[in-house]
C-alpha cells in the first residue's frame, strides 16, 4: 500500500523491493511466534502420553547400587529411569520397591520407619508400606509397585 506513493524511478523500486522483503520477513516472524505459542502447547498436550510411554519403555530394569546392604526396616532412594523410586527392606525380610512420586501432586514420598508407612510431606498423603496403597490424605491412586529380585547377591528392580 505504501508503494504507490513513490515515483517509478529505479532507486525507488529497489527500496520498495527491500521494504517488501523486510515486511514479509517481519510478518513471517510474527506469524511464527503466533503459531509457536498456540501450536506448541497443543502439540505437547496431545503428545504427552506418547512421550511418557517412551520414557517408561526406555528403562525396564535397574540394579540398585548397594541395595543388598540395606538393613531391615530401612528404605533407600534410587532412580528408575528418570523417576525417583524407593526400595524398602521390611522387618519381616521382604523387599518391595515403589515409584516414589506421590500420585497427588508429584512430590517425592518418604518412608517413615517409626510410623510404619510411606508419607508425602507436601500435603500429608500416606501409603501402605507393603502394597503402596493410598491409605490417607489426598492421593487419588496407589503408588506403582516394581518387582524386586535378588540376582547374584544384588537387588534388581524391574517393571512389574
Amino acid at each position: 500500500m505504501a508503494e504507490h506513493e513513490h515515483a517509478e524511478s529505479g532507486g525507488e523500486s529497489r527500496l520498495q523491493k527491500t521494504r517488501r522483503a523486510f515486511v514479509r520477513l517481519m510478518l513471517s516472524a510474527v506469524g511464527a511466534a503466533y503459531a509457536g505459542l498456540i501450536a506448541y502447547p497443543i502439540y505437547r498436550f496431545l503428545g504427552a502420553p506418547a512421550r511418557r510411554a517412551e520414557g517408561m519403555a526406555a528403562v525396564t530394569q535397574v540394579t540398585v547400587q548397594d541395595g543388598e546392604r540395606l538393613r531391615a526396616n530401612e528404605a533407600k532412594m534410587f532412580r528408575f529411569g528418570t523417576r525417583p523410586a524407593m526400595l524398602i527392606h521390611h522387618a519381616d525380610n521382604t523387599w518391595v520397591a515403589f515409584d516414589a512420586v506421590c500420585t497427588h501432586l508429584g512430590c517425592t514420598v518418604q518412608f517413615q520407619a517409626d510410623k510404619q508407612r510411606i508419607h508425602c510431606a507436601c500435603h500429608g498423603g500416606t501409603y501402605d508400606m507393603h502394597t503402596g496403597r493410598n491409605i490417607g490424605g489426598p492421593p487419588p491412586k496407589p503408588l506403582k509397585a516394581y518387582k524386586v529380585e535378588m540376582k547374584d547377591g544384588q537387588v534388581v528392580v524391574s517393571r512389574a
Binding site: 502447547p41 504427552a48 487419588p140
Partner: peptide
Amino acid sequence: AYNSVREITFDLDFGWLI
C-alpha cells in the same frame, strides 16, 4: 471425572493452560 481433570491440570504438558 475429577481424576481426569486432575490429570489434565497437573500431569499433562500444558494441560493447565488449555
